[in-house]
Design a protein around this nucleic acid. Structure first.
Length: 525
RNA sequence: GGCGCCGUAGCCAAGUGGCUAAGGCAGUGGAUUGCAAAUCCACCAUCGUGAGUUCGAAUCUCACCGGCGCCUCCA
């Protein structure tokens, strides 16, 4: 077993070997908590949650850090807009973020450091950079000197001198346009911390350099984030850390694809920049604002934010599955129909889980999870069922080994559940009088593998909410049972008109009946 | 203008040099069922276009068409 990961730095898949054998440090750039999260913010956390589960499963000791940026221009702007302190904005939006993570089953994060809680480390880091002549203070600001770093641009494959750099009034104080702020002097009324350069706040990139060093060390294994962060954010982090330490910051840079809002028809036209430039005289300096054509960026689309409501409508598991269906480096086009469709596929598994419980009396969701790869090896012997399960498990794992190809691995899960359903059919496992103990035992062993593999993806940890909502749900359930009883009587008397009327009536209320040999079951759609 | 990515069935989506191109959704036919539901079985693509490299390409090269991203805040 060799895990291979795609490294943005080398633009190639490489065998995964941690810096220290057996130990893995992962740093994922988290949100700037100034507004409610949108679904695009969940792509990284869900895939890295899955990656961590997988690495732990493969025997690594993993520490996963996700930072919270709780001081920044956008936060200040939002606080002013709402007339509340910046910290309150951060607290509210962090709570929203955490709530969303929980709903999507992201629970593997070990540390969530906040920028404002690491000001001392940040200042110390900047001082080291100044000492080493990689940074210079000017009138209360401190900038990183891009020209001092010969390697600058190696992550995003661009040259330092071609960069326009961030604008604003501070730009005039920079030596060259590509230099970026490590420390920003405070304007009156802005939140600030004391520093050797006067009151101010950290620049955007420095917190990640300082906090990753503190929690994971100068060189760590995996740094993740959205593709949009490659430049300038990660390029600048890398420059700061490597100039400061004189050693590599990160062994594997991993970037997830961005989510796109579904636009009318296929998403349109040439790139925004090309459109913009076509519309005006060439050779202009700063890139202009969006031309306002079809909006495909999640962060700018009308539906941005609103993740909490989306979760309420669709449920976290569907959204997680929707995200995992596509390879993490691909663009995902968001549509609520897409999520609903993913949910339809998920039904197959939940149906199977119910069936498993009917057969064994045990809840699938309560089955112990095989947490280690080595422990999940099957002893297939002469069992054709278990040989098939073994084949599917191997296939699943080989796809996960190949840069965490969850989309491909999921196909094996569908195959596996079909294999198990077939065994159930052929061995008549639902008929306690007919089935053989051996067939039952093999079926249970095979299902343990399904449990093992689905847990790696963080799926099927809970039964889907299938009860009737509201305070009277118990009563409603009893009423459904009563109707089923009446229908059974009708069927016994061959009064199918009445039986069908009951079933159709319940269907109209969103309740589906399933007649089986042992009796009639029901579920709510 | 610079640096990248993508174009696989009605839809979503794996595969990136070689057995019959995964899987899902939708659909069709069948088994099962009183009829359904669930489940199972079968069917459903030659891979944007053109040329080239090769014994062999969806997979490599070139051109063209179409779509997207970053270069400025962004997960």
């Amino acid at each position: 077993m060799t895990i291979r990961v795609y490294n943005t730095l080398t633009r190639a898949k490489e065998p995964f070997e941690p810096v220290q054998p057996g130990k893995v440090g992962i740093y994922l750039c988290g949100p700037t908590v100034y507004k409610e999260a949108h679904i695009g913010h969940m792509v990284g956390p869900v895939i890295f949650d899955t990656i961590k589960r997988y690495l732990v499963y493969c025997g690594f000791d993993v520490r996963w850090v996700v930072n919270i940026t709780d001081v920044d221009d956008k936060l200040i702007a939002q606080a002013n807009l709402r007339g509340i302190p910046m910290q309150q904005v951060a607290t509210e939006m962090t709570a929203d973020y955490l709530h969303n993570l929980r709903a999507l089953g992201v629970d593997q994060i070990d540390d969530m450091p906040k920028a404002t809680e690491h000001i001392a480390e940040i200042i110390a880091f900047i001082e080291e950079l100044i000492e080493r002549d990689f940074a210079y203070p000017v009138d209360g600001d401190v900038f990183f000197d891009v020209s001092a770093d010969a390697d600058y641009g190696k992550l995003s494959n661009r040259s330092a001198d071609s960069q326009q750099g961030e604008g604003g009034e501070a730009a005039a104080r920079k030596r060259s346009p590509g230099d970026f702020a490590l420390w920003k002097s405070a304007k009156p009324g802005e939140p600030s911390w004391d520093s050797p350069w006067g009151p101010g706040r950290p620049g955007w990139h420095i917190e990640c350099s300082a906090m990753s060093r503190r929690l994971l060390g100068k060189t760590f294994d995996i740094h993740g984030g959205g593709l949009d962060l490659v430049f300038p954010h990660h390029e600048n982090e890398l420059a700061q850390s490597e100039c400061c330490h004189g050693q590599p910051m990160v062994k594997y840079w991993m970037h997830n694809g961005l989510m796109q809002a579904a636009a009318a028809g296929k998403v349109g036209g040439r790139s925004e920049r090309e459109r913009d430039q076509a519309g005006q005289a060439t050779g202009s300096g700063q890139p202009p604002e969006s031309a306002g054509n079809v909006e495909t960026k999640i962060s700018r689309s009308k539906g941005a934010g609103g993740l909490a409501q989306l979760i309420q409508r669709q449920g976290g598991e569907r959204i997680r599955f929707f995200l995992l269906r596509t390879h993490y480096r691909s663009t995902i086009v968001f549509s609520e129909e897409g999520i609903a469709e993913a949910g339809t596929g998920l039904e197959t598994f939940h149906r199977f889980c119910e069936r498993y419980e009917r057969v064994t009396g045990q809840s699938f969701y309560d089955l112990p999870v095989i947490g280690r790869r080595a422990d999940g090896q099957l002893e297939a012997g002469d069992s054709s069922l278990l040989r098939e399960v073994q084949r599917q498990r191997d296939s699943f794992l080989s796809k996960m080994d190949d840069d965490f190809n969850t989309g491909a691995a999921i196909s094996d899960l569908f195959d596996l559940v079909r294999t198990l359903n077939k065994a159930c059919d052929q061995q008549q496992l639902e008929d306690a009088g007919q089935r053989s103990p051996r067939a039952l035992a093999e079926f249970q062993r095979g299902t343990a593998t399904l449990r093992e593999l689905t847990a790696l993806l963080g799926l099927f940890r809970q039964p889907p909410p299938k009860t009737l909502g509201g305070a009277d749900q118990e009563l409603a359930g009893q009423l459904v049972e009563l109707l089923i009883e009446l229908r059974a009587t009708a069927r016994k008397g061959k009064d199918f008109a009445m039986a069908d009327r009951i079933r159709d009536g319940l269907a109209g209320l969103g309740i589906t009946l399933e007649d089986r040999k042992e009796g009639t079951g029901w579920r709510r759609d």
